[in-house]
Design a protein around this nucleic acid. Sequence first.
DNA 1: CATTAAGCGAGACGGTACGTCGGGTCTTATA
DNA 2: TATAAGACCCGACGTACCGTCTCGCTTAATG
Lengths: 190, 190, 190, 190
Amino acid sequence: MVGASGRGRPRSESARAAVLHAVDDLLVEVGYAALTMKGIAERAGVGRQTVYRWWSNKAEVLYEASVLDAQDELAVPHSGDARTDVEAYLNALVAFLARSHAGAAYRALMGEAQHDPAVARLLASRDILGESAAATVKTAIAATSTTLSAEQATALLIGPAFFRILSGHDADNIDTGALADQFMRVLKQG
Amino acid sequence: MVGASGRGRPRSESARAAVLHAVDDLLVEVGYAALTMKGIAERAGVGRQTVYRWWSNKAEVLYEASVLDAQDELAVPHSGDARTDVEAYLNALVAFLARSHAGAAYRALMGEAQHDPAVARLLASRDILGESAAATVKTAIAATSTTLSAEQATALLIGPAFFRILSGHDADNIDTGALADQFMRVLKQG
Amino acid sequence: MVGASGRGRPRSESARAAVLHAVDDLLVEVGYAALTMKGIAERAGVGRQTVYRWWSNKAEVLYEASVLDAQDELAVPHSGDARTDVEAYLNALVAFLARSHAGAAYRALMGEAQHDPAVARLLASRDILGESAAATVKTAIAATSTTLSAEQATALLIGPAFFRILSGHDADNIDTGALADQFMRVLKQG
Amino acid sequence: MVGASGRGRPRSESARAAVLHAVDDLLVEVGYAALTMKGIAERAGVGRQTVYRWWSNKAEVLYEASVLDAQDELAVPHSGDARTDVEAYLNALVAFLARSHAGAAYRALMGEAQHDPAVARLLASRDILGESAAATVKTAIAATSTTLSAEQATALLIGPAFFRILSGHDADNIDTGALADQFMRVLKQG
DNA sequence: CATTAAGCGAGACGGTACGTCGGGTCTTATA
DNA sequence: TATAAGACCCGACGTACCGTCTCGCTTAATG
């Protein structure tokens, strides 16, 4: 018996799906800045309360609608060759952060997290970027027998591209091949 | 003669200063999230219109009040030894981003910039972090005769720490010594 | 000379005239509701302070610009026949109150006076309507040997038309001939 | 079935009542000039938007809060004797216009109406003074078989006192007995 | 089958920040 | 000292969004 009594009308999965869909649409159409709870509910053809019943604030809806669903944008096939996998991952990372709608949502949420503890907790509850890199990092560590921890290696892998994108630099100028080389070299020596 | 009509009452530098001071105080007292234009004006003992006359939005005031003034938090003495300077810079960077009020303001602004083009332009107009690292990066490049561009090297230097702090990881666990070593090693080899 | 020391630059009569002229123009162009001190000063090509130097508030400028100048709208030639003069006066009164710009200004000021004591004092300082009716009323009183005071007679003369116009009734439907007859009849019997 | 969608939360009659009550209180405490929408909402413990939802401007709230409710101040018992009723009505009129809070509100609104068409329409939508006088005027007309229209008679009845009060003359000096006599005399002869 | 209780769409609710506007004062350089 | 210009402080304006609440109406599971 998981929760609830089973009495009363069950929650509408279709309402939930409509909200998530509406968020995706609105993100594309009006952008994050113009996203409002009222707008989302209306677009979804759903009562405002229903949105708040499933998610407790705007960040949560957005996170689930856009970020979670988009994890596969960061999933890359593993070739077995560490260097190849690293570059593939970096390409996926740049594409996600700099060019996808989900990435824009993720950046916006990370921004909110800098001054809203609730959003910070939300993002911390699931380390999307870290997880997405985990397999690649693991392969690279195994291939180089570095002494670096996975966490350190992850920061080395993601950090440079992450910084350049968040800083507003042109994502097209990021040389993922070079970054991959540098990353592998550090691992081989530490 | 830098422009200026000379006609009419001159803008009050003291009002301007009072606003910047008020922002600094309020950031410490109530934090970024609770910062409002009304609150700033009232705290500064200044009319609301006066604030809007000098800055066109909250981000601009905050940027000038907190971020510009705080560049010296990122200024580190140069020892002449590249490795030493790099670690010193990384320590200053972590202290700024993760522990100072100005750093909190900077992270908040960088967050806004992710969905507000005006803020993005504002931050892009003066690449605070890049500038602060420039001397250190230059020294390191000279000492290693790397083929990396300054921009690439800057991203390598700042990225990993930047990523971990923005992601909400514990700043105390950042091993700046190790990061400095890794940075130098990459430069020596590329 | 009348007051002042004579030292320093004398007040500019032309600035004063420009303001009064500007008020007249603006009243016609934008109406009372859109009249602002800033607008008046700009239209007159005059500093804001200069306006306040001559008049202490908006009501005073308007009063002098529009109402005082318009007293001659209410001045009617006297024929010597009381009944004739009364009707002529009533026609002038209706034309002034209901159809002239000065009359609109007067009504607006009388409106302000209902909740602004300063404006009330201003209007009380010079009983424009009462004065304008004085000669007509005097003639009528003399012609009828009524026991009514001038003040009572004035209220009887002006009141009915005044009420209908201020109440927003159609001024064209006011039968000034009938009103004149009724006025004369009351006087003859009291 | 008087319309109404039946959907959504119904408007709160208690909020509406709280606003009207707050307006009454504030009129007495701070007067018309200091009445603000913000102040009204706060005093009523109501959101600002809620006030705007029921009434579209200050005049409307005031009209409903103060003027409509105050019609009974102008309701006088009818004795059957026209002359008696007329004097009783004039006493009530003077008391209302010159001495009651509702009367002050009415004068203020009539003032606004002189330069604000919306307020003019509002007042025209319900001719408070005319209605209040209607029964008295009807009785007087019947008793005198005058040829005057009701509208003309109303202006004769109300006009003189109305003019003196709006002009700021001392209301205590208004001889309602004399005005009643004059009114009756005019009717008997026309 | 009737009851019951929770979810539903709709939209009003109390709050609060926004950016603008007007009032009346103050401070420049110039005349 | 008056002037034109325009910045100053103040505070009301009407709008927008937040997250909560309250309607009448479904929609199951329970009795």
